[in-house]
């Protein structure tokens, strides 16, 4: 109830501030004009094409990152020697800002989807990998010994022991990767010019269509909210049965 009030107050503030001249309307159009611009946008096919482009790039990138992250994490995590050997490399590569790759991506792949995908995959891969590694490391040593004494095959061990323990971590990693992937998708579109909402924002900005630009920014925000809500509820539903349901970091 209070939240509704807060949201209404926020919109009212956005409406009133430019109308009362507190901020120039050229910089921040009143909320009603942003809404009108949004109404205008959704009537055009280009908006829906851009939205679809963004969602596609995001989904492809996320899928590649999750598959690679889970596979690499399971492999590295299950082999102690690999784990030791790779840890310094992972610690080194992970903090490299993915946007550093932008010039490289443009040079190698032009302004097409592949260039942006490179950023998206690079940034979200580490989120998944690191969480999966934490998860595999969390396997109870006693259970591990038991599995050994039962002479389970490596595959059985992975399925019955490692995977269930690592699942909550993996899901957390996927949740983090989901929002990171969205951010990098839109970043790539904005900076590189890959087709999508980000590119539309850049176009609106350079052509001085201020209300339209704000309308598109609002759309990216709403998209972010939707993604956050969906992944959080998905995480809860998926892990409801899990005994080690923990507060995510």
């Amino acid at each position: 109830m209070r939240g509704l009030l807060g949201a209404a107050g926020f919109v009212a503030l956005l409406e009133a501030a430019p109308r009362l001249g507190l901020v120039p309307a050229a910089y921040l159009p009143p909320a009603s004009r942003i809404a009108a611009a949004l109404g205008e946008e959704v009537r055009h096919g280009t908006f829906w094409v851009a939205l679809l482009d963004t969602l596609q790039t995001w989904a492809y990138g996320l899928a590649v990152a999750v598959v690679c992250g889970v596979a690499a994490g399971m492999l590295i995590g299950s082999v102690p020697l690999l784990r030791v050997l790779t840890s310094s490399t992972v610690e080194f590569l992970r903090p490299i800002p993915s946007v550093a790759l932008i010039p490289l991506a443009v040079l190698l792949y032009g302004t097409g989807r592949t260039a942006t995908l490179l950023l998206v995959v690079y940034a979200s891969f580490w989120q998944v990998l690191v969480q999966v590694l934490h998860g595999v490391a969390d396997v109870d040593p006693v259970a591990r010994d038991t599995a050994h004494s039962l002479r389970l095959s490596p595959w059985q061990r992975l399925r019955t022991l490692v995977w269930p323990t690592a699942l909550p971590y993996t899901v957390t990693g996927i949740r983090l990767a989901t929002s990171v992937a969205l951010i990098l998708t839109i970043t790539g579109e904005l900076i590189i010019g890959t087709p999508g909402l980000g590119k539309e924002i850049a176009v609106a900005q350079s052509s001085g269509a201020v209300p339209a630009m704000y309308a598109l920014v609002v759309v990216t925000g709403l998209l972010g909210v939707a993604v956050n809500l969906a992944t959080r509820s998905g995480e809860r539903r998926l892990l409801r049965w899990h005994p080690s349901q923990r507060v995510a970091v």
């Binding site: 109830m1 209070r2 939240g3 509704l4 009030l5 807060g6 949201a7 107050g9 926020f10 050229a26 910089y27 929002s179 969205l182 951010i183 839109i186 970043t187 904005l190 900076i191 980000g198 924002i201 850049a202 609106a204 900005q205 201020v210 630009m213 704000y214 598109l216 920014v217 990216t220 925000g221 709403l222 998209l223 972010g224 909210v225 993604v227 956050n228």
Partner: peptide, 24 residues
């Protein structure tokens, strides 16, 4: 409780799109 939905929204806006706005 009052500011939570607004914060949810502001946090979800991909930070790079702030660049064109703030250039303005």
């Amino acid at each position: 409780e009052t500011v939570e939905p607004v914060l949810e929204f502001l946090r979800a806006v991909p930070p790079p799109v702030l660049v064109p706005i703030l250039i303005l």
